[in-house]
């Protein structure tokens, strides 16, 4: 007696699964936004004159990149409340994804910034712009364009990593799937569907990234 496939379970729970997709998308987009902010500020701080700030950024990157995401999110969820900072699961998940993605984003964006010819900076300074203005107005856009594929690849990773946020019971696709699976014992059908849903989410994001690139980074270069 083999396992009989029965996708009616999936059909019944489709609304919940779709809400789960939205949850995942919400976590991912908020995480990306936070990661982008951390990435850009981090690159600027990494090049600061203040040694302590540079060291802080380097230490942050080292810690994040050399520890498991699961431990990071547990730390935020279980350890911080003992220091008096209680966060709800979704907020914890967004912060964890943002910090994790941010550490990688700093390194990626920094590579982009380093690829910008120093003549660009000099031209900006010679025109009287301040260092921060030069970074924001002259360096940043070409720098991000230069590393756009790696950065968006990292953001897809972040989206998939959000499934780990199920461990603190954040509302997203994997946690919804786990609940349905434990109610129905239809593991194959549920996770097969969820796999396709993650694929669809990734494709949607890649399409959006490509559209953003056409909109903002389509200026010609020689």
């Amino acid at each position: 007696m083999g396992y009989e496939l029965d996708f009616s379970v999936v059909w019944e729970h489709l609304p919940e699964l779709l809400w789960g997709c939205l949850g995942t998308l919400g976590l991912a987009l908020s995480g990306m936004t936070l990661a982008m902010i951390i990435g850009v500020l981090g690159v600027f701080a990494r090049g600061s004159n203040m040694a302590w700030l540079r060291r802080l950024v380097i230490a942050f990157i080292e810690v994040i990149r050399n520890t498991p995401f699961l431990v990071q999110i547990f730390f935020l969820y279980f350890a911080l409340p003992s220091m008096g900072l209680k966060l709800n699961p979704t907020v914890t998940a967004i912060i964890a994804l943002g910090l994790n993605g941010g550490a990688y984003a700093i390194e990626i964006i920094r590579g982009g910034v380093q690829s910008i010819h120093k003549g660009q900076v000099e031209a900006g300074l010679a025109l009287g712009l301040h260092k921060t203005q030069v970074f924001r107005l002259i360096v940043l856009k070409p720098a991000i364009r230069a590393i756009y594929p790696s950065l968006t690849g990292q953001f897809i990773m972040l989206t998939l990593t959000s499934s780990i946020c199920t461990s603190v019971a954040a509302y997203e696709l994997t946690s919804v799937a786990q609940r349905i699976e434990s109610d129905t014992f239809r593991s194959f059908e549920v996770y097969f569907t969820v796999t396709l849903m993650y694929l669809a989410i990734s494709w949607m994001l890649m399409t959006a990234f490509a559209a953003i690139s056409r909109q903002y980074f389509s200026y010609p270069t020689r």
């Binding site: 010819h117 003549g119 660009q120 000099e122 031209a123 900006g124 002259i138 070409p142 364009r145 270069t221």
Partner: peptide, 10 residues
């Protein structure tokens, strides 16, 4: 004015 122009490409 620089040897390499240094116009902002974007």
């Amino acid at each position: 004015v620089f040897q390499g122009f240094n116009l902002f490409p974007h």
